[in-house]
Structures are given as structure tokens and as C-alpha cells.
């Protein structure tokens, strides 16, 4: 009977040791959601331009076309021919249809970090990031916000790019 008791104790200890062994492997956390140089480097094709009325949104107007938003490619189809190429510290714009693109015409770019987050200075034109993507998603959304002379935001232009 004592032998059975000792054997049981040994088995219990073995089980305890086994439970403590660090064998578990965790899957990789994955790519960061961040805005870094790699987030914008390369050539981007403009796929969609959405004009948004932030004042109509704030006033609770209906979420309808010509009230809160308008897809501008419907009236300027050449938006989808536009491309932007970001290299180390400069960018170029290809705009064969000469459509009204409020992202500057090319030149130097740099990140601008403020309390509100990270923005983009495109040759003097300040642009916000509409969404944060993983680099591998190959997506980029830039937002140009038109302001009045008094500094009130009147209109948002959302530019959706993909590679």
C-alpha cells in the first residue's frame, strides 16, 4: 500500500513539472497598424474621391448624396487616372486629366506630428491620414480639409489610393 502511495506521489510530481514547462508557442503578433515611411512610399493609384460636408454631418442632415457626401469620380472620371509617387522626401503627381486634385502638384513631403496625430505636409499643403493601414494592405487614404479664412473647416476631400 505504501508503494502505491509513493508511486502516486511521483506521478503527481511528474504531472506538475510537465504542466510548468514553457512549451507553448504563440502566433506572431502581426504587422503594426502605423504610419511610417513605408506606409506611403511607392506609386499610388487614385481609386476614389469622396467630398464630405462636415457641417451637414454636424447638423444631423440626412446621410444622402448631395447632402452629406458626393463621389466626385462621377463628375470627374479622370480622377482614376491620377497617380502619386512618394520617394524618400519628395513626391510627384501624375494628373493626365488635369482634374482638381487638392494635394499639391509635387515637391517635398514630410510628416508633421501634432497633438491631433500625424499629418502630411505635401509641398506646403497639409493633409491628414483618413485611416491607418498595415503596409501590406497597400492602401492609403489622404484627407484634404478646406478651411475658411477664419479657420473653420468647410469641406473634406477623401482621396482613396491603392497600389
Amino acid at each position: 500500500m505504501k508503494i502505491i502511495g509513493k508511486l502516486f506521489s511521483v506521478a503527481l510530481l511528474a504531472a506538475a513539472f510537465s504542466a510548468c514547462s514553457p512549451k507553448e508557442d504563440f502566433a506572431p503578433i502581426g504587422e503594426n497598424l502605423s504610419i511610417e515611411q513605408a506606409s506611403i512610399s511607392g506609386t499610388w493609384k487614385l481609386t476614389r474621391v469622396r467630398q464630405v460636408d462636415p457641417i451637414a454631418q454636424a447638423d444631423g442632415k440626412p446621410n444622402e448624396k448631395f447632402v452629406q457626401f458626393y463621389e466626385l469620380a462621377a463628375v470627374y472620371p479622370d480622377f482614376t487616372k491620377c497617380q502619386i509617387n512618394f520617394t524618400g522626401s519628395s513626391y510627384t503627381v501624375t494628373n493626365p486629366g488635369n482634374v482638381p486634385l487638392f494635394l499639391g502638384t509635387g515637391g517635398a513631403w514630410k510628416f508633421v506630428d501634432t497633438a491631433k496625430g500625424r499629418s502630411l505636409d505635401m509641398a506646403g499643403t497639409m493633409v491628414d491620414f483618413g485611416e491607418v493601414y498595415r503596409v501590406s494592405e497597400n492602401k492609403l487614404t489622404l484627407v484634404y480639409r478646406r478651411m475658411s479664412a477664419k479657420g473653420d473647416v468647410l469641406v473634406h476631400y477623401f482621396y482613396y489610393f491603392s497600389k
Binding site: Q51, V52, D53, I55, A56, F66, V67, Y70, L72, V75, P100, R146, S148, D152, L154, V155, Y157
Partner: peptide
């Protein structure tokens, strides 16, 4: 008659509706 967006500058894209 209305205009989209409701507030805009002379440089904006404006749609007369």
C-alpha cells in the same frame, strides 16, 4: 435649389442641385 457642400470657398468643387 441647394448647393453641395453647404459651405464652401471659391476654390472648392461645388455642385448646384
Amino acid at each position: 435649389f441647394r448647393v453641395f457642400p453647404s459651405n464652401f470657398t471659391e476654390n472648392d468643387i461645388v455642385t448646384i442641385v
